[in-house]
């Protein structure tokens, strides 16, 4: 019988500036060790910096490499959505992690 995949949700809170990047990387690495599916929940993220965004891109690439699953979920703050759109990461406003997942430039193409 096939084992049910284990899941871990990472849901950091606050403005997620540069200082949040290193702890997030560690948390995601640990999550990949513990579970087959790792989800990043945007709901409590008030803002994101490029350093954190890079960690998410890297996580997506790691998941592809490991044969694991990594996805974005939760509601995305308007500020975050606008920031990503202005910097060209998305072409339109995204209100959920699922929308971001499919809109982020070069994000989904690596895995899944």
């Amino acid at each position: 019988m096939k084992k049910k995949p284990t899941q871990k949700v990472v849901s950091p809170a606050g403005p997620l500036g540069i200082e949040a990047a290193a702890p997030l990387r560690r948390e995601l690495l640990a999550a990949f060790e513990e579970a087959d599916e790792v989800l990043f929940d945007f709901s409590r993220a008030e803002d994101v910096d490029l350093a954190v965004l890079q960690v998410l891109y890297a996580a997506k690439r790691s998941a592809a490499h490991r044969g694991a699953f990594f996805a974005l979920i939760g509601s995305v703050a308007e500020k975050v959505s606008r920031r990503l759109q202005v910097a060209g990461f998305t072409r339109s406003a995204c209100s959920t992690g699922e929308e971001l997942e499919t809109s982020l430039v070069d994000f989904g193409s690596v895995s899944r």
Partner: peptide
């Protein structure tokens, strides 16, 4: 203004130094 980010230099999590910028536009 329209921006296009290049993220191809962002490595996997294991190899990423979170304090290094790997993105260009």
């Amino acid at each position: 203004c329209a921006c296009f980010p290049h993220t191809e230099n962002i490595p996997e999590l294991e190899k990423l130094d979170p304090e290094t910028c790997r993105t260009s536009w």
